[in-house]
């Protein structure tokens, strides 16, 4: 870890000013990702602005939905009675995130902005265009078992590892952002970017922009939801692949649907074709299977990650089955 200047800031405007004004300055929330990156020399900031005391940790129900502070701890969100009651996909995704200790430290904003788990990025020394632009992509011809199936580029085949982001995408959530240019809101779908030629960029945020809260619209509250996560261990592991589904079911008929996929792209991946396929039909095991297959449409495997394709199909079917109460 290289030396850095540390400041804890209690005022939103000052935090934004610091983040935008001083070069190579990063925000520190729960620290669970940033400290890992510091330990491995992947993040080498000159300055760290500790935002953990900013007033962003409340979780509140509003008339049009729920507002979850960006500094709310994952454990508190997962435990929140309203979240459990109205957004079970979210509660499940968070309950299956990391470990109890990490959930007590980690924040929702930090979770969305955690960096990829690509082994080549994380080891701090291998070729990696995301960590060291121009050094090449080690994963592309290397150990690519967890690499992306969708939206990858020659420059980077990494996936986004967040469980939360996948659930939020299926709930049509937005992130509320405060920055030098004022406030704005970004749909979760547009928060993260694809790697393209600039794999070192992960999100749409400008320097100094802070996530203040996540907004989950009320609409999704009445929908049938589920989050299904596949991993090697029974607990305490990032997803290999995952799926969040949210279905508006009226008289057995799917009237509207959101399907989001995790572990398969540089961002949580919206499966619109699957949504279209589901709408207007009745959920049964056959449809769940069909939808799973459809979710893999357009997947472009590398040498070592083709097995993720059938697993993705099945995890989508499983999420649908869970949402629909199928066996």
């Amino acid at each position: 870890m290289q030396p850095f200047a540390y400041r804890k800031i209690h005022d939103v405007a000052a935090a934004i000013a610091q983040g935008a004004g001083e070069p190579n300055t990063v925000f520190l929330a729960g620290g669970t990702d940033l400290v890992q990156l510091l330990q491995d020399g992947i993040a080498r900031p000159a300055g760290i602005v500790d935002i953990s005391d900013l007033p962003f940790s409340s979780i509140a129900t509003t008339i049009d939905g729920m507002r979850i502070g960006a500094l709310a701890k994952l454990a508190d969100v997962a435990d929140h009675p309203q979240v459990r009651a109205h957004y079970p996909a979210l509660a499940t995704a968070l309950g299956e995130t990391a470990s109890p200790m990490v959930r007590n430290m980690a924040t929702t904003g930090g979770n969305l902005l955690q960096r990829t788990r690509c082994l080549y990025f994380r080891d701090g020394v291998s070729s990696c265009n995301k960590r060291e632009p121009g050094s090449g992509c080690g994963a592309l011809r290397g150990e690519d078992a967890r690499a992306a199936l969708f939206g990858a580029s020659e420059a980077c085949v990494a996936t986004h590892a967040s469980d939360l982001a996948v659930a939020l995408l299926a709930l049509d959530a937005e992130v509320l952002v405060a920055g030098p240019a004022g406030e704005r809101s970004i749909p979760v779908e547009r928060l993260h970017t694809l790697p393209g030629d600039t794999p070192w960029i992960d999100s749409d945020l400008e320097p100094g922009e802070l996530i203040s809260a996540i907004f989950v619209p009320r609409g999704a509250a009445g929908w049938a939801q589920a989050y299904a996560k596949l991993r090697h261990r029974a607990s305490f592991e990032w997803p290999l692949v995952s799926a969040a589904v949210s279905l508006a079911v009226v008289d057995g008929m799917i009237e509207d649907a959101r399907v989001a996929l995790g572990g398969v792209a540089h961002k949580p991946w919206r499966a619109e074709d699957v949504e279209t396929l589901l709408i207007g039909r009745e959920l049964d095991p056959v449809l769940a299977r069909e939808a799973g297959e459809a979710a893999t449409e357009g997947a472009r495997p590398l040498a070592g990650n083709a097995a993720k394709i059938p697993l993705l199909a099945r995890v989508v079917s499983r999420a649908l089955a869970d949402a629909g109460g199928l066996p």
């Binding site: 788990r117 082994l119 994380r122 291998s126 080690g138 150990e143």
Partner: peptide, 15 residues
């Protein structure tokens, strides 16, 4: 996990 090109243990951590 051993990368057969660079000869490195890629998952040298407990996560």
């Amino acid at each position: 996990v051993f990368d057969r090109h660079c000869g490195r243990v890629m998952n040298a951590n407990l996560s």
